[in-house]
Amino acid sequence: MTGAAHAAAPASARRRPDALVLVFVVEVLIAWVLAAPWSETLARTVGAHPDGDRVAFWHPGGLLLVDLAERLRGVLSALVAATSIGLAVFALASVFVLGAWTAAIDDPGRPLRAAIARGAEVFWRLLVLGVVSGFAACVVAALLGIIPAWGISVRLADWDPRAALFLISLPLLVSAVFIAAILAAADLARARVVRHDMSLLAALAILRDRRAVWSQLVASAPRWLASIGLLGWGAAISSHSLSVTTIFLSHQAIAFARVALRGSVLARALRLAGARAAASGIE
């Protein structure tokens, strides 16, 4: 990879709408495939009701919902298992998508086909990076969050529960900040792998650059918050008596916006990685 290609236009998710739409379409298609057994099962159970399946879900009192749960008790575990397996397979495949998408964002002039090829090249490194960062996040969650919180809760069993909750939440908050930092650092490392074709170890050296990690964390935080907050918008829209089509379009618009926010985080990581590399003479 040469630095000249990057100098012309800084990495930007907005400059690659094709990649953005492609990622969104892939996610929707996968979700549609995974949701099909659920919706088909429910359609066969309550689809014949003249009021449609609305009556099963939102009829005040929920008696049909209870009957539905009882009727589906046998197949529910199968549906959950199938969905879980599908999500696991997609999680693996999404590493490739991530690589291609990052490559496309990195260079607005790069053809999509070239970006996909780049995604294939960096697949294994990104996969290991994902596993390592995920493992690190779990360890931090356990060591800094869950175990201390559990220890505090045991010791504070006789306390006023409001004060106990406040104290228990402190280690959880601290661990959340560290996990966020790990996720930010992982994005920076991904950017270095894709942009500078670094080895995994070289890419992870970004951990030594605390300013870069902090800068990425600060840039990502509002996007993450917005992404989570959009789920709240989705819940609020669902709670209104709108038509199914309106709710569907709103939910998909929210899903698209969340993908775009993720692209924005990746673009930020690429720009930061580029700036840091330039400062240290790496091209």
């Binding site: 996968i30 919706s39 429910l42 449609g52 399946d53 969905t83 199914v244 569907f248 939910h251």
Partner: peptide
């Protein structure tokens, strides 16, 4: 079951994200 289809798509979409 349009509502089931929409909700399951939305929720599993959250998981795929």
């Amino acid at each position: 079951a349009p509502i089931a289809r929409e909700r399951s798509l939305a929720w599993i979409g959250v998981l795929t994200r």
